[in-house]
Design a protein around this nucleic acid. Structure first.
Lengths: 111, 111
DNA sequence: TTGCTATATCGTACAAAAACGATAAATCAA
DNA sequence: TTGATTTATCGTTTTTGTACGATATAGCAA
């Protein structure tokens, strides 16, 4: 992305964008839903469900983890992942605030 | 993104991902906030505020429009943009549902 | 008409993302 | 120990995204 000028924006805008970027691929949305449906960490299984190679799924998991949306622990030869609920609580609030302001502050009748 | 296998996922996951992708750059977040602060459509001005070239801003506006997040009309030699509030109402609901389920369905104590 | 202003589009360059196969690493089972 | 299993990482290829300057387009003002 050509020397992305990300750092020139406010920290909040960068955080929101980074969070949105983590959600910007259907595979990652699907992964989050799978993790949410289980009442425990998932070791494996995700690869079986998605139409992607194992290495690609592993890559998506890594991105979600780096974005802080999921936690992961190593359990023997397996790895376990689960939703980081605190992160979603935080962004749920931030996004709701953003969306609400985008909806209500604007009373224009044009366009 | 190497022949992106987007079409292999559910429509809902694709829609959520597409919406998130539109929000995945701080410049686009900033643009939406600017539009929200005004009570009318904005003709120009956005370029003056952002640390980006005019052509780059125009490109971001195009992406937001294609994603349905903003509306735009041509007003003489100028163009006017404003928030598409209906789109945000829709995604606010969808995202809130998603986030809530991600937070509450998961009662695990691991990780 | 001529020029000015504002915006969109084009062409281009480079960075990053997405995907895969192959391989490495680590544990468990036999 | 040996082999099987599971996941992460590496290397590579292709596609997208980001950014810019230059140019085109279109209306307005003089």
């Amino acid at each position: 992305m050509a020397s992305a000028k990300t750092e020139e924006f406010t920290q909040e805008d960068q955080d929101l964008a980074a969070f949105a970027k983590a959600l910007s691929h259907p595979a990652r949305i699907a992964i989050l839903k799978i993790l949410a449906k289980e009442n425990a960490c998932i070791c494996g299984k995700i690869v079986d469900v998605l139409p992607l190679a194992q290495s690609t799924v592993s890559q998506h998991l890594k991105e979600l983890k780096q974005a802080g949306l999921i936690d992961g622990t190593v359990d023997g030869p397996k790895s376990c992942y689960c939703i980081n609920r605190k992160a979603f609580e935080k962004f749920n609030t931030i996004f709701h605030t953003l969306f609400t302001s985008l909806q209500t502050e604007n009373n224009n009748t044009c366009c």
